[in-house]
Structures are given as structure tokens and as C-alpha cells.
Design a protein around this nucleic acid. Structure first.
Ligand code: MN
Ligand code: MN
Ligand code: ZN
Ligand code: ZN
Lengths: 132, 132
DNA sequence: TATTACTTTAGACTTAGTCTAAAACTTAAT
DNA sequence: ATTAAGTTTTAGACTAAGTCTAAAGTAATA
């Protein structure tokens, strides 16, 4: 069982069961912003007996413990993102793919000056086509 | 049947049936960013026989014709917004309420300079608490 | 009127996600 | 080692959002 992953889970207060390590091995390494159903399919490849409930429970636990974040960008499904620090997202309207945009690539001003709103966090959601 | 609404529907190439006018009367006037289920409940008050399929069909038609826009901001449900011009959204984490933020209240820079991305549109999603 | 096109309807179906209660597995205590 | 207690996993029931279908109802056309 991947020792580095085991340590990372323990470091976030998560008991490293075999199933949780399997989920973590995939979700912490990917950049594809997968849905829970996609994580389930991936984990099943190597761990055919894993249940849907375990994958959902595990992902929700990871979110609660700050190991990944949950994003709601497009209809119907929540996706998960191992990049938990602030960044923006670009959605390719042709493919549906979600791309990460570094925080400093975009400048957002006057958010603190909104009257009547206590902004705790924000991010920019961009849509268009990947070029090149 | 509300003549102003009828004209607005015709102006967007939509046949103004009684059900469509009922949906439009609610959705074009509200600022609460309702879900389809909420629209269904509201329309049923005055039009008890309306079906779920009709409300969904009608909302999808309105989106297609540019009368309202669809937003995906929080888990599980799409919401509809009669303000179709560019603006941002603030989500009150305590209540779940979605608030409109005028486009000019926030300044977003360098979006056109993103290498490899053809940005067609974007908006800022803010989260926190309503103050006051 | 007859024909055609469009719209609505009930309910079946699908998909994402939650919940439950039992089984399996860990850990700690005798 | 044995037991007990706590934790995790599991299958499958359940819920909620949304789509699809095929028939019935309306409206426009000839
Ligand atoms: Mn962390
Ligand atoms: Mn319009
Ligand atoms: Zn990301
Ligand atoms: Zn809005």
C-alpha cells in the first residue's frame, strides 16, 4: 500500500483503509476533475469489489478533511479537484473538459468593496474553446 | 393572458401557450434564481394541471431562445435567471440564496491574455455571508 | 371540414447521490 | 488469545433532478 499516500491520509486525520488509499491514488494524481461516478469506475478497475457507497463516503470525507475540493461547474454532476488552493476554471464548451487557471493569471479587483457582502472566497469561471 | 408577456414571447420566436405564459410571468419577474422544481410548484398554484414535462420543456425552450439563462452554481440543481446580460453571482453560504452582482461592481483583468484559451464568456462566483 | 403541425400530459425511465442495516475489519482491553 | 468496542465497507433500497415516450389535446392551414 503506497506509503506516501498513507502518510498523506494520516496527516489529514484519515484512517488509511485499502479502499481510501485506492481512491486517493487516483484522485490526488489526476488533473481531469473527475465526477464521483468516474472515480468509482477507475477504482473498480483495480478493486472490483468496491461499492458505490464507499467511493461517495470517501470523497465526502476527503472534502471534509480538506484533501480535495468539490466543484459545481456544469449540470448534474459534482466534480472533485485535488488542487485545493485558490485557482480559476476554464470549461471547454466543445469537449466539456475543465482546465485549471492559476490564480495569478487573472486579476480580480474591488471584491472587498462590495457593499453588503462579506466575501469569504471567489473564483472566476470561464467558458470558451481551447486553442491550439 | 398578460399581453406584455405574450408579446415578449412572440418577440423571441415562442408560441405563447397558456402554460408558457404562466411560466414566463413567474420566471421573468423573480429575482430568486429558482430551480425547475420551484417553477413547477409556483406555476401549479395558479395552473394545477400543468405537468412536470411542460415546465422543463418550457424552461429549456426559454434558454434556447435567450429569454432566460441557466446557471449551475450549487450541487444537484440547475437554476434559471431572467437577467441574461453579463453579471456575477454571490452565494450566501448561510441561506443558499443567490444574489446578483452587477458587472461593473467587479473588475476582472487579463482574461484575454490567457495563452491557449479562447474565452467566450466568464463570470465571478463569490461565496460568503450577506452582511447587514 | 379535413389536414397538418405544435403542445401538453402522465408516467416510465435514467442518473446522481444518500441512507440503512448487516457484515467485515481494526483496535484496544482483558 | 478472546472478547468487546469502534470503524469501515457493502448491497441494495430509496430519493431527487431531469429526460423521454407515446397518446391526447390545440391551433393553424387548406
Ligand atoms: Mn491538505
Ligand atoms: Mn432577450
Ligand atoms: Zn481545478
Ligand atoms: Zn443572476
Amino acid at each position: 500500500m503506497n506509503a506516501e499516500i498513507v502518510e498523506k491520509l494520516r496527516g489529514h486525520g484519515i484512517q488509511p483503509s485499502a479502499q481510501r488509499v485506492a481512491v486517493a491514488e487516483y484522485i490526488l494524481a489526476t488533473d481531469e476533475h473527475p465526477s464521483a461516478e468516474r472515480v468509482l469506475a477507475r477504482v473498480k478497475r483495480r478493486f472490483p469489489m468496491v461499492s458505490r457507497a464507499t467511493v461517495y463516503n470517501t470523497l465526502n470525507l476527503f472534502v471534509e478533511k480538506g484533501l480535495v475540493q468539490q466543484l459545481v461547474l456544469t449540470g448534474g454532476r459534482v466534480v472533485f479537484d485535488p488542487w485545493v488552493e485558490d485557482h480559476h476554471h476554464f470549461i471547454d464548451e466543445a469537449t466539456g473538459k475543465i482546465h485549471d487557471i492559476p490564480w495569478d493569471a487573472i486579476e480580480v479587483k474591488r471584491v472587498d468593496r462590495l457593499k453588503g457582502f462579506d466575501v469569504r472566497k471567489f473564483h472566476v469561471v470561464l467558458k470558451g474553446r481551447r486553442r491550439g
